[in-house]
Simulated scan of single mutants.
Amino acid sequence: MKRSYSEEEHAAIRESFMKYVRKVVPPSLIVAVLTGLYLISQVYGPIGPDGLTWFQSLLSLKAFLGIWLGLRGGLQVYFKIQPFVFKSHVLPFAFVITIIFLSQFMYLPV
């Protein structure tokens, strides 16, 4: 997109897009975390005498990553608390990709 527009036009377009992102993402984060917490309470199931199943283990990992992402996002947006250590968007993006891949492996028979 930078090649098609001048620097000023690109900045204006980007800011216009970000205005809508800032309105949509925070409520979406809260809905995602709350529905995720509800669903994990419904799907997790009892822990058997042999310990956690493969499904429960991956679901726990996904829940931890999702809660971390939701808390980080909520603290940034609503309380203006910036992360101290991981300031870039690389780690959250990596967590989202990890959650997607874990979803693909959850139902494999082990």
Rank of each mutant, 00 (worst) to 15 (best):
F101Y: 10
L102W: 01
W68D: 08
P83W: 07
G70F: 00
T98A: 14
G66N: 14
L61N: 06
Q82E: 08
I67A: 09
L91Y: 06
T98G: 05
I100T: 11
Q82W: 10
Q76I: 04
F95D: 00
Q82F: 05
P83G: 15
F93T: 13
W68L: 10
A63L: 11
I100A: 14
F95M: 08
A94G: 11
Q82L: 09
L102E: 05
Y78V: 14
K87V: 13
L65N: 11
K80W: 03
P92S: 04
L71A: 13
F64H: 01
L102H: 07
L58M: 15
K62N: 15
Y78M: 11
L58D: 07
I97Q: 08
V90K: 15
F79E: 03
G73F: 01
W68I: 11
L58R: 14
Y78G: 07
V96T: 14
S88I: 00
T98W: 02
L71G: 13
I81D: 01
G73N: 00
L102K: 06
K62M: 13
F79L: 12
S88L: 00
G70H: 02
T98Y: 04
P83H: 13
I97V: 15
G66C: 09
L69P: 04
F93Q: 05
F84P: 02
I67V: 15
K80Q: 08
L75E: 02
L61C: 08
F86E: 06
K62F: 02
K87A: 08
I81G: 00
V90E: 03
I100S: 12
I99G: 05
W68P: 01
K62E: 14
F101E: 09
K62P: 02
F101I: 10
Q76M: 08
P83F: 14
I67F: 03
R72G: 02
T98H: 01
Q82N: 08
G70T: 06
S60A: 10
L71H: 01
F93C: 03
L91G: 04
I99R: 10
F95C: 15
L69I: 14
I97T: 03
F95E: 06
V85T: 15
F86P: 01
F79D: 09
S60H: 07
F86Y: 07
V90F: 10
L61I: 15
R72Q: 13
P92L: 07
F64S: 12
F95I: 11
G74V: 06
Q82K: 15
L69T: 08
L75M: 03
F86N: 07
L59I: 13
H89W: 09
L71D: 02
V85M: 12
K87D: 04
I67S: 03
V85N: 04
F64C: 14
K87Q: 12
F95R: 03
L102D: 09
P92G: 11
G66P: 02
G70E: 04
F84H: 14
F79N: 12
K87F: 01
V96L: 11
H89T: 13
P83I: 15
F79Q: 12
V90P: 05
